[in-house]
Every structure is written in structure tokens, then in C-alpha cells.
Design a protein around this nucleic acid. Structure first.
Length: 257
DNA sequence: ATGGCTACGATCCGTAGA
């Protein structure tokens, strides 16, 4: 099979970011793109604009919050939204099969604050995710899980571990939930390769965080063993974060041979 | 430094993100 380029990008409103996305698709020409925080109801999804750019779309959206989508050059099959058996109004999960690859797009709950209701929801969501991904792995040996997982797995994924210690995104239960995904046999695509120190995928809009590189690595590409064996690169593209009116997240990309 | 951005849907402020 030809090389396949995968990407994930939390666009923080597809309506606002569509021009940047189209520009970026033209420059990077990925084969699959998982989007998060589209914040668009399905009838407002820009199907025609993306089709003109060469992409088929599948999406599960809602007004104001959340919303996920998968863009793909090859035809999409077996499209499914949500985690089976986990009732959830929030549109955070979408899966499809295309080009010989099973692709899962995730927007994990933020968690707000350790101990809050939203934090408990985040941990329950992760437990349901783990159960489901175990089944997906059994069904699809060539599996890629991409998205905004809202967990910085290790201290090196945090600009200031001391400042963040115990906080949401780095708390031990969240990191344990991340490790439980790895224990299924998924691998952190980014760590398959040597990477620059202080590599992050999200920077707060406030306090000049991007300029100071005060970020977190919370957007991830997880690969099954078969997919990881074929992975030749995994990088974070900081260029879109430098644009005017950017998303607070940068895209993460991987290449499979 | 508990935020001093940004997007949204509601009105000129509250909620949420991370």
C-alpha cells in the first residue's frame, strides 16, 4: 500500500477555522484528518467545501460544544458515532474504516477540575473507551486512534510540571487511564521517534503562552502494533498555531508506509 | 498571578475550554 498520512486537529470551531483548514489540507495533503470541537450541527457541516478540496466527510456534531469529524480521501465505510453501551449526548467519538485502516476520532472530556462532576465523567468516559477499544483492536488489527485526549501522559509533556502537579490533564487517575490504553497494545505514535524537548500540541490563548511555549501535549495518535510497525514519522505542526486567529491546538500528524 | 483569550449564544454577560 502507498504511504498514508494521518492527522488530528482540534480546530475549536470549524466555522471559524474552515479557511485555515482548507489552506492546511492543500499544503499537507493528509489522507485522513480527525477534527475535534467542530461545534457545528450536522446540517451545517461544510461538506461541499471539503469535497472540492478532495475529501469525503463523516461527522457527528452539535451546537456550541464538542463535535467530531473524519475527513478522508478514500471512501469511508463502517462509520459509527459514540461508544457502544455508553449513553452520551456529547458528540465526542467517531470511527470509520477506509483505505485498509480503522480510524477512531476522539475528543476526550476536559474534566474541568479534579474531583468535579466533569472529572468523574471524564474518568467514566475513559473506562468505557478502554473497553470499546479492546474490541476494536480485536476486530481491526490495523487501528489508529487520533484525537484531543486531554491528558498529558508524562511530565515531559508539560511545560511546567511543578505548576501543573495534580491538576486536571496530568492527575494520576487520568494518566492511569492513558496507560490503560497503552496496555491494550496501543502505542504513542509521537514517542516512537526521537522528538525535540518541550514538544506540545496546545497552548493557552492567554498570557502569551504560545510565545513562551507554555503548553501541554494532549493531542495524540495511538497506533496498534501493526500500524506502529509501519509508522515512519509522527510530528506536531506548529505552523497553524502561528496564524492570526488560530485554534489553541496544533495538528499532530503521522505517516504509515 | 486562578487570569489578563476565544467562541458561543445569549444580549453588552455567563459558560466553557485546558
Amino acid at each position: 500500500m502507498d504511504a498514508v498520512k494521518l492527522a488530528t486537529w482540534n480546530v475549536n470551531s470549524l466555522k471559524v477555522r474552515l479557511p485555515q483548514l482548507l489552506e492546511w489540507l492543500g499544503a499537507q495533503r493528509p489522507d485522513f484528518v480527525c477534527l475535534q470541537e467542530t461545534k457545528l450541527e450536522d446540517h451545517k457541516f461544510p461538506v461541499a467545501e471539503l469535497e472540492a478540496a478532495g475529501y469525503r466527510s463523516s461527522f457527528a456534531g452539535q451546537k456550541t460544544y464538542n463535535g467530531v469529524a473524519i475527513l478522508a480521501r478514500p471512501p469511508l465505510a463502517e462509520v459509527a458515532a459514540g461508544i457502544p453501551g455508553f449513553a452520551d449526548e456529547q458528540k465526542r467519538v467517531l470511527a470509520c474504516t477506509a483505505g485498509g485502516l480503522r480510524v477512531v476520532c476522539l475528543y476526550a472530556p476536559n474534566g474541568q477540575a479534579v474531583g468535579s462532576d466533569k472529572y468523574e465523567y471524564k474518568l467514566r468516559w475513559y473506562e468505557a473507551l478502554r473497553r470499546w477499544l479492546a474490541e476494536e483492536l480485536a476486530r481491526h488489527p490495523r487501528l489508529a486512534v487520533l484525537g484531543d485526549l486531554n491528558v498529558a501522559p508524562e511530565d515531559r509533556d508539560v511545560h511546567d510540571p511543578k505548576l501543573w502537579e495534580g491538576q486536571v490533564h496530568v492527575s494520576e487517575p487520568e494518566r492511569a487511564a492513558w496507560r490503560a490504553l497503552l496496555a491494550l497494545g496501543l502505542q504513542d505514535g509521537f514517542r516512537l521517534f526521537e522528538q525535540p524537548e518541550k514538544s506540545f500540541s496546545w497552548w493557552d490563548y492567554r498570557m502569551g503562552a504560545f510565545r513562551r511555549n507554555a503548553g501541554l501535549r494532549i493531542d495524540h495518535i495511538l497506533l496498534s502494533g501493526a500500524a506502529a510497525a509501519d509508522c515512519t514519522a509522527c510530528t506536531i505542526d506548529k505552523a497553524p498555531r502561528k496564524l492570526e486567529r488560530p485554534s489553541d491546538h496544533a495538528p499532530v500528524m503521522a505517516e504509515l508506509r
